[in-house]
Design a binder for these strands. Structure first.
Lengths: 199, 199
DNA sequence: ACCTTTCGGCACGGTGCGTGCCGTTAAGTG
DNA sequence: CACTTAACGGCACGCACCGTGCCGAAAGGT
């Protein structure tokens, strides 16, 4: 009965087995929310969770792996496009809604941390693309293909690259400028898209 | 006459004053070229240049500042668009030429290092945009505005955002995928642009 | 009740950061 | 030309984080 009292007094039951994984992900997200990208380290997570570093390394081989899982957890379904029958309106609504969500605390700092690490790691860059960006592109593509079938967009055109252009432009703003995707920019982007493919 | 002989034997004259700045920039670029983004640290530059760290800190407040200057030095005039009178061909040629230059050793690693650091530093992000990306966008805009005046593109449309979309799409590929801007993608991008604004 | 796995705690060597202090050397001054 | 001043290289420091190893304690399965 030396330092045990600390745990006893805190009434924290004891330790756990696999639910620790969950707790560590939550801790990571909290840390990112409160202190941003800076200070998002394995040591910081371990410290805050009151955990030995091994407990983290046993689950994830690197900070990047932890961050990927943490990002999955906060990557909400904000991605889902509405389908009101008006593509342009649906895209507009989606872009204006998702851009701030991307920059704001839970997702923003984690995402930025991953992007930073990915610059030094080609594999991570590919993983990041596969697990997140590709999904975004695919959902965008699905929505505009539906519009194409409905006759809102010209038929007989492959919309794969246009979908990429739509998403890419938003990410470009997010990553490399201090500007977000404000209404004017989104409208201009959709002007171009509709001028090219509207029927 | 203790360790002086080392310098004497190497026949390196002695030290310098302001030309050291030049040498340090060259050293940084060499380091980036040979060892890539990883291992691009102030200590590494100092070690390689045979220089005390103060000598670097006296000139640049941070690694990011050093990298910005180094990038300026290798940022060649690959940016300049031709003007053959055919916008689409000129844009195509420029995109296909600049994309690999952006990824290849001198520029690639330095650029990536900056982008990584910029994720943690909003100010650096703004500086990076102002000093490099904005220039790219402006030159692109200048080229397509000339095309507009020449009647190649529809009149009366603000092409500022379209220029951003063109550049942004290429940077999106460069930064977040393992894919570069290959011919198919560039052609698809230009298809969209010309479909929207070609006259 | 036993045994195995997981755990927290601690310490280590390694690396880079940013700073301080040396004694030396180059460049500017009269 | 001698003298002063500023820049220099080298070294060391405290700090932070990395990834690993070892320990004894606790938890969970049998």
């Amino acid at each position: 009965m030396r330092a045990d009292k600390i745990r006893d007094m805190a009434k924290e039951p004891r330790r756990r087995g696999a639910a620790r994984t969950d707790e560590l992900l939550r801790t990571t997200i909290e840390l990112a929310t409160e202190h941003g990208y800076a200070g998002l380290s394995i040591e910081a997570v371990a410290r805050r969770a009151g955990v030995g570093k091994h407990t983290i390394y046993r689950r994830w081989p690197s900070m990047a792996a932890l961050l990927l899982d943490a990002l999955s957890r906060v990557w909400t379904t904000d991605l889902d496009y509405h389908d009101t029958g008006d593509v342009r309106a649906d895209l507009r609504e989606q872009f204006l809604r998702s851009a701030p969500a991307l920059a704001a605390p839970p997702i923003g700092p984690v995402y930025r941390a991953l992007i930073a690490e990915a610059q030094a790691d080609e594999t991570l860059r590919a993983t990041l693309y596969d697990r997140f960006l590709r999904t975004v592109e695919e959902r965008t593509l699905a929505r505009i293909v539906r519009a194409q079938r409905a006759g809102e967009l010209v038929a007989g055109v492959d919309l794969t690259f246009p979908a990429e252009v739509l998403c890419g432009t938003l990410y470009y703003r997010y990553l490399l400028s201090t500007r977000l995707a404000e209404e004017k920019a989104v409208d201009a982007l959709l002007d171009m898209f509709m001028a090219a493919y509207g029927s």
